[in-house]
Nucleic acid binder design. Structure first.
Lengths: 191, 191
DNA sequence: AGGATTTCTTAATCTAGATTAATGTGCGGC
DNA sequence: GCCGCACATTAATCTAGATTAAGAAATCCT
């Protein structure tokens, strides 16, 4: 089972398993310490990171030095800066580990069409389209929903992350401050 | 030249031209009046719309009845609700014409892998990944940039639309009110 | 375990942008 | 060509969420 979610990507190649990736020389295991940064803004993302155990996140840093969490990647997810990984452009994102994490590093050959059969390609395209849908919904959410509504949506989408991710990073993912999210939680509890 | 930008999609099949689309029975010309709605929220988007001449837009309607413009589609663009078109789910979006518009309606067979060669597929995947990158940037923008910065970014991205699209819809695309955008324009002029 | 650092909560201001409202401008239809 | 209506501007409030601040709770590290 190969899933590329990610900044951008959510590709699923149903015929590929961990063993295949390792055997084919397209991936290798690596341990990441909590807090360790494995991709820096400005670098070319030469690899994608498949989370076996643990939790990665990707984020951008604005001109004021503020972190904006783009996504979280728990077990089973693959994360990279898809733009950088695909087009060999400098990354807009950092990727680091929020927990001690075991990953498989994947190289570019994973995205090549030659190595896939037609079913895989159809599935990959569907997953990309699905990922586009998710981003579409997130854009609409950011444009039209209040912070409280976006938080409720986050809870539905990632029910297991609430107890794993510090509040301040959930707030960052939602595009609000930790104080604002704390107040929202307080209001929910009062009801 | 076949481009699927869109809510989500930006697919380019370089070997397909208008003539091919028509000859293959996968598309047919249609004229859309200004203001005419060609896709309603809740419908299945059975077709994608390739703009030959004119301007379409897609938008969502929130619970308060407010319109949120998701994207504009001038000449050369293809627009649909990719989620609905691909997965046959009810559309989140409306699509209507902002100018009298000539389109080619495309049916589902355009997205099928069988009808494409390997180069086409690679190109299609690249375009999807590119579209994901654009959405990624828009999410980051919405989270971290001020309304004025987002307006500047809009001007860079769509230099020709400023004089074609009413201010109120540009404001909607940016996620702000017409009054706020008017004030921003005033401040830019004063400098 | 215990001191240090980071995170969370709560509350008092502050501000970007929303809302409301009133006036001005442009454009399409007859 | 001018009437009518949609669109744009400007200004006065209003409000969600930011900022600041300070104390409480959790977590980390040796």
């Amino acid at each position: 089972m190969f899933e590329l979610h990610g900044f951008a990507g959510l590709i699923h190649f149903p015929t590929l398993y961990i063993q295949d990736a390792i055997r084919l020389g397209q991936g290798r295991f690596r341990h990441i310490d909590k807090g360790e940064v494995i991709l820096y803004q400005g670098e070319i993302a030469s690899r994608a990171y498949w989370v076996v155990q643990g939790l990665l996140r990707s984020y951008s840093l604005d001109s004021a030095g503020k972190i904006h969490v783009f996504m979280f990647a728990p077990e089973g997810w693959i994360v990279s800066d898809v733009q950088s990984f695909t087009f060999l452009e400098p990354s807009n994102l950092f990727i680091d580990a929020m927990e001690p994490t075991l990953i498989i590093e994947l190289n570019q050959s994973y995205l090549s069409v030659q190595s896939l059969n037609e079913g895989d390609v159809t599935h990959a395209i569907n997953k990309l389209l699905r990922r586009i849908s998710i981003l579409q919904q997130r854009v609409i959410m950011l444009m039209s929903a209040s912070a409280a509504e976006r938080y409720e949506h986050f809870l539905e989408t990632y029910p297991d992350l609430v107890n794993r991710v510090p509040l301040k990073w959930i707030a960052s993912y939602l595009g609000i401050t930790p104080e604002a999210l704390s107040t929202i939680r307080g209001r929910i509890k009062d009801k």
